[in-house]
Nucleic acid binder design. Structure first.
Lengths: 326, 326
DNA sequence: CAACCTTCTTTACAAATGTCAATAAACAAT
DNA sequence: ATTGTTTATTGACATTTGTAAAGAAGGTTG
């Protein structure tokens, strides 16, 4: 047997080595060759270990949230609309040609992940909504325990081809925060108002929904009311229902609830078949993080702000500039 | 003027760009060229910005503390000595030739920095000692606010050629934790016991010292009692005093206080001229982090453990193996 | 407007890293 | 002891990054 060290020890010793190697590389700035020499392993093995560190979250990167909220555009928006903080995600420089929405969403969700760590405090009870944007935020969050926190699922269970089920989002955020997780033991949409009412009256679900009226913080996105909204994709609202909602003045969708241009809830179909937090629940939380990507959500974002549904805002530059231009 | 973007905007906009670029590079994994293209800047400018991000702590790296405490050696030591966690710093592989003490101390201090983030909790009142090891730990800590924390300087002000003054260590730890800092407005050593007593009786200093008896956590190292100890280098103890202390059974030095092999305080010169927390103060804290580097501190480390002065231990592999071999 | 300073760009080159296929070594199961 | 599986190594090569010097561009000051 040659002199190189083999790692046939248990999983925990492997983890200890991985974490130490991560510190040597990312913290101390040693090269892969230097580490390989110290550990008597090949550089390829070190490369594989560092990749495993990144993949498993052994090492996490954190960027100062306050700097992300430092831009003059963000501060002007915060002042203009009376928000506490506005984080403008800059996935590219000014004047540079547009990146695909996927790239913009990637940066918006990373900025939001950093913002959450800035905003959340120990003891917080946090409501987490569901959708493509929220799923991306959950995924982007580093593992960063905040003591004594609880995460509550805001929208009943629902599957979608586009994103993981709603409880998966909440559980992922809870895991990243080391929080206790309260899922909502009901589907997000049922076939009749009567059934929905019956479910809401179930003691377990009733107490779960009651909890949602006493949140310290919410994490949500706002959707537009076009036919390609997430709500349609998830079979929560039909095209006809969306059309009727638009006719009644619906400007945005937050937490599967319609709001008009003033942020007032519009109780039109499928309103009474939905099992989720209400707009009043969201409004009641002291800290309300809204994460939005895309200029097509301008009217919806403005409506949410106007309705008092936002205290902290994460958005991309185009949307920020559009909000500023009004 | 060509198409590239210049950054003559204010400091805050620069910070916003820096933090976003840090997220794109470290978080999203884009290459420097990809970011340069998006921002219409040169790759050299991106390189400079990333360096500035690292230097200013815009981006911080964090390694999971629990994995650092996961090794079988660490867990065995914890069980053997009744400690909560033992973090073994592995600056190289088993059987590899020794690295210089400086390199070992670098890794021990990085591991300790990660351990601190694991241990400290919101609301904690934290005592910070002083010495070469503690200074390295303070420097290695990433900026990671923990709400409602207070940092207290355990040893009166003292300068040394080797390390920054004791209040500088405490202030640095406080800054990294976003904690309130309570410095000790007295020198660490004075020329007479009478003067020390008079200073301790001063209301301000008295209340500062009183605070040290009610700590939630301490961060300290343990020194040996050889002639080259930090205490001598800092002109706190003379060679004669050290010799006398050894004769009286002194085995280690913690917080400028001698302890014997059982961890009991030895009140010999310069005991009554020192203005610092007492051994009883340290023992009273529920969480006691001891950070040690070097096999020459084996006896001192064992004494500290035996004296109930340690709940969490960070040490290098040699020292860990030596502790295990007893 | 000129001079000076700061910041950015260009270019080159060395070093480091990422990736991958083939092979070797270690480990586990039979 | 053999076979199969898993992990590590070797070697090669492309890409990325780090560094630095020289020059260009932008901004500030007098």
């Amino acid at each position: 047997m040659n002199k190189s060290q083999k790692l046939s020890a248990g999983r925990n010793d492997k983890d200890a080595v991985l974490s130490n190697i991560a510190l040597l590389y990312y913290g101390e700035g040693l090269t892969q060759n230097e580490i390989a020499k110290r550990y008597k392993l090949s550089r390829a093995t070190i490369v594989n270990m560092l990749r495993e560190c990144r993949e498993r979250g052994v090492v996490e990167i954190r960027v100062d949230g306050q700097l992300l909220a430092a831009s003059s555009l963000g501060r002007d928006l915060a002042e203009r609309y009376g928000l506490q903080d506005v984080y403008v995600a800059l996935d590219r420089g000014e004047g540079a040609e547009a990146t695909p929405r996927r790239d913009q969403l990637a940066q918006v969700s990373r900025v939001a992940a950093m913002a959450i760590l800035d905003i959340v405090e120990p003891g917080d009870q946090i409501g987490v909504a569901w959708g493509e944007t929220i799923a991306a935020v959950a995924k982007a969050m580093p593992r960063n325990p905040v003591p004594d926190t609880q995460v509550c699922q805001l929208i009943g269970s629902q599957e979608s081809a586009r994103v993981p089920a709603s409880e998966i989002c909440a559980i992922e955020v809870a895991n990243k925060l080391g929080a206790q997780c309260h899922t909502l033991h009901a589907p997000g949409i049922v076939s009749s108002a009567g059934l929905a009412s019956a479910l809401r009256s179930e003691p377990t679900i009733q107490s779960q929904l009651a909890r949602l009226s006493d949140l310290d913080m919410t994490i949500a996105s706002i959707g537009h009311v076009g036919d390609d909204t997430h709500m349609a994709a998830a079979d929560i609202a039909s095209v006809q229902e969306l059309d009727q909602a638009r006719h009644q003045g619906a400007t945005g969708i937050i937490c599967c609830r319609y709001i008009d241009g003033n942020g007032e809830e519009i109780r039109t179909a499928p309103y009474d078949r939905v099992i989720a937090a209400s707009v009043a629940d969201i409004k009641a939380a002291p800290k309300k993080l809204l994460v939005v990507c895309g200029r097509d959500r301008l009217a919806a974002t403005r409506a949410a702000i106007k309705g008092g549904l936002v205290t902290h805002l994460v958005l991309d530059r185009e949307l920020a500039e559009a909000l500023m231009a009004e």
